[in-house]
């Protein structure tokens, strides 16, 4: 058994919407998060880049408490993509350069590279985001987050509004970017098959808690708790 490097560690987290959260995220790994609506999946992700703070407990990123990082740096290094693509008004390029410009790191050639990663033609740079299809918008949202060169990616139901083709495309490039561009990833999904396809480990959340966690195959094929068994049957 190889000893993988821990990059994120949450200990005894209690918040308004979460109880007893304990887990580690290792380098090179994809964790998929599943669970019923309102279980606290999004709330958990938001704690990791400090879009929210817990009442108790600690989260360490690369061995250091996340509260010790400058907030902007932490959020840059732990990137997040959301369900509704939440693009800003303006052109594709305006969106792609938003993050890097905050840190004076934008170079115009970056735009084309990023579009290539999400498999869109470079002519798209000048397009207004409103002219794009839902799938294209979501890919731009990905590219916008990748523009910051994050080390960890947090994804919240990023494919739930997309058709099969876009889902396939996004899954393929997610597999490509971990661990080459991004060290690790945590993704919330309501699609159990997707959790299987992408996850190395899977967490099942219910009622503000992580009820089961382990290797994806174990958690999903041999659920221990009745709640997870019932959830998987639905």
């Amino acid at each position: 058994m190889s000893i993988e490097k821990v990059i994120l560690e949450a200990k005894n987290i209690q918040s308004d919407r979460l109880k007893n959260i304990n887990f580690t995220l290792h380098e090179g790994e994809i964790i998929t998060l599943i669970g019923p609506s309102g279980a606290g999946k999004s709330s958990l992700l938001m704690l990791l880049n400090r879009l929210e703070d817990p009442n108790e407990g600690t989260i360490h990123y690369l061995g250091k408490d996340i509260n010790e990082y400058p907030l902007e740096q932490l959020r840059k290094r732990i990137g997040m993509v959301f369900q509704s693509s939440s693009l800003f008004e303006g052109s594709v390029e305006d969106n792609l350069k938003f993050g890097p410009s905050l840190f004076d790191e934008w170079k115009p050639e970056r735009g084309k590279e990023l579009l290539e990663v999400v498999q869109l033609p470079k002519e798209y740079l000048d397009k207004n985001v409103e002219e794009l299809s839902g799938g294209e918008q979501q890919r731009i949202a990905f590219a916008r987050t990748l523009a910051n060169k994050p080390e960890i990616l947090l994804l919240d139901e990023v494919t739930s509004a997309l058709d099969v083709k876009n889902v396939e495309l996004i899954e393929r490039f997610l597999k490509e970017i971990v661990p080459n561009q991004v060290k690790a990833m945590m993704m919330v999904t309501h699609d159990i098959e997707q959790a299987k396809r992408l996850g190395n480990r899977t967490f099942f959340m219910n009622n503000e808690e992580i009820v089961e966690q382990g290797r994806t195959s174990q958690v999903l094929e041999a659920p221990k708790t009745n709640t997870l068994q019932a959830f998987l049957k639905e």
Partner: peptide, 9 residues
């Protein structure tokens, strides 16, 4: 929230 998540103040 997306802007904050990108590191915006």
């Amino acid at each position: 929230i997306a802007a904050l998540a990108l590191g915006a103040k």
